[in-house]
Every structure is written in C-alpha cells, then in structure tokens.
C-alpha cells in the first residue's frame, strides 16, 4: 500500500488489539511503517491516535523522540530544564543534578541554539508556567527534538500554535528526523508534510494510503460521525 517498501520495517502490527487493561481502543490493526516514512495520523478525538502512538513508542523506545499531546512539562522548571530533560537518559545522575542546579556551558549552548529555532531564545530561563500555551507546546517539542532520535512520534505537536508557526515547526521536525508519525487534525498540513496518511475511525484503521492518493474531501469524512 505504502511506498518505500524497500526500506527496513520499523514498526509492524499484525491484527493487533490495542487498549488499556481489558478495554480495547483499537482492533484489527494491520500496519507496517518503514524507515523514512512520514506518516500523518488522522481521526477525530477519541479515535485512538494517542493509543496507537503509545503502542508504537513501546515497540522501539530507544529510537523514538516522543512528543506527547499533554505537554508533560514540569511547570516550575525553565525552558532550558524542560528541554534538557530530553537527554536525561544519556547522562549520569550527578551530571543531571548539576545541570538542574546550575546549567553547564555545553548543554546550555546546545539548548540555546535549539530554542532559537523554536523562537524561545528569550524565554530560555523562564519557568514554563509563565509561558503561553503556544510557547509551552514549543518547549515540549523542543524536548522531543533535543532527544535526537531517528524516529519522531508526535501527538498533535503543533495544534496549539498558529498556522505560520505550525508550518515552520513541521519543517523543523521533518528536517531533523528520518521517520515520523504525527497525529494531526489539520488535513492540509498532513498532506503537505507527510507521504502517507492513516485514518482512524470507529476503533479501526479506516484508511491507509499515500498522501498523493488522498482526496481531502474523503479525509474529512473521517471526522463525520458514523
């Protein structure tokens, strides 16, 4: 169905039932995602996008840069610290503790550069509870970017920012990751940045085709009540 069949498969789900505890959210998931694919997940809220993304994350935790929908920021820490948290796993506890108390030069420079790209350079040492919703969303994205993993999994990463910014941010994500799977609610953005679209509806994968083959009107039907 999808292109790039020659690339190695990253994620594979075979008739999977996904859910929480005994409650199934998605049934009969038949899905393969290969390296290099840029996948958009579409579907109305509650369709199971988050569930699917979480499932994908759990399949390759070490390769994934993760950007959750509820930003998962620590409100009283600064933009620097929240972004730094993207690499907590790469350093020793004491190095982390040191940076918590007093940011060291190297991570500070790295993160400042990243913040510049995200338009957060002036807020680097502002605690995120003092930021606007859009700025928080960008901080959360910054944390995912700072992870520097080959696969980006994002759950509505640009839904809290305006169109111009969304455009820029998606460019940034695309440029820094080989593969990505993003839940989006903006069909036009999905078609612009992704080469494959997966639509979820009624607890199933209702649509899975190359972006080039998609009819925007058909995609909108994913949002119609069954």
């Amino acid at each position: 169905m999808s292109g790039a069949m020659t690339s190695p498969v990253l994620f594979h789900l075979d008739e999977a039932v996904i859910g929480y505890g005994s409650r199934a959210v998605l049934r009969g998931c038949q899905l393969s995602i290969a390296t290099g694919e840029k996948v958009a997940l579409l579907g109305e809220s509650g369709a199971g996008k988050t569930t699917l993304l979480r499932q994908l994350r759990s399949l390759r935790p070490a390769d994934v840069a993760w950007c959750p929908q509820n930003t998962g920021l620590v409100p009283m820490l600064s933009v620097f610290h929240n972004i730094y948290m993207g690499r907590l796993d790469r350093h020793s506890f004491f190095y982390n503790l040191l940076n918590l108390v007093h940011p060291l030069a190297q991570p500070r420079d790295e993160i400042a550069a990243l913040a510049q790209q995200l338009g957060l350079q002036e807020k680097l040492f502002t605690s995120v509870d003092k930021l606007s919703g859009g700025q928080q969303s960008r901080t959360s994205l910054g944390r995912a970017l700072y992870q520097q993993r080959p696969v980006f999994l994002g759950d509505e990463p640009v839904s809290a920012v305006d169109e111009v910014q969304a455009d820029q941010l998606l460019q940034l994500i695309c440029a820094r990751h080989e593969t990505m799977v993003i839940a989006l609610h903006d069909v036009a953005l999905a078609l612009r940045y992704c080469n494959r679209v997966i639509g979820l509806q009624g607890g199933r994968i209702a649509l899975d085709q190359p972006a080039s083959a998609c009819d925007p009107a058909e995609l909108l039907r994913l949002y119609a009540h069954a």
């Binding site: 935790p61 070490a62 994934v64 993760w66 950007c67 959750p68 930003t71 998962g72 920021l73 620590v74 820490l77 610290h81 730094y84 948290m85 993207g86 690499r87 907590l88 796993d89 790469r90 350093h91 020793s92 506890f93 982390n96 503790l97 918590l100 959360s140 944390r143 992870q147």
Partner: peptide, 17 residues
C-alpha cells in the same frame, strides 16, 4: 512529565527533574 521522559532515564534523575 515522567511519561514524557526518554526511556532509560535513571530513577533518581527522573525523580529530581
């Protein structure tokens, strides 16, 4: 916040952040 941390983060690092 804890769920958003990269997998493999040490328990103490995660706690302190």
């Amino acid at each position: 916040a804890r769920q958003a941390l990269p997998v493999g983060t040490g328990a103490l690092s995660a706690f302190f952040f």
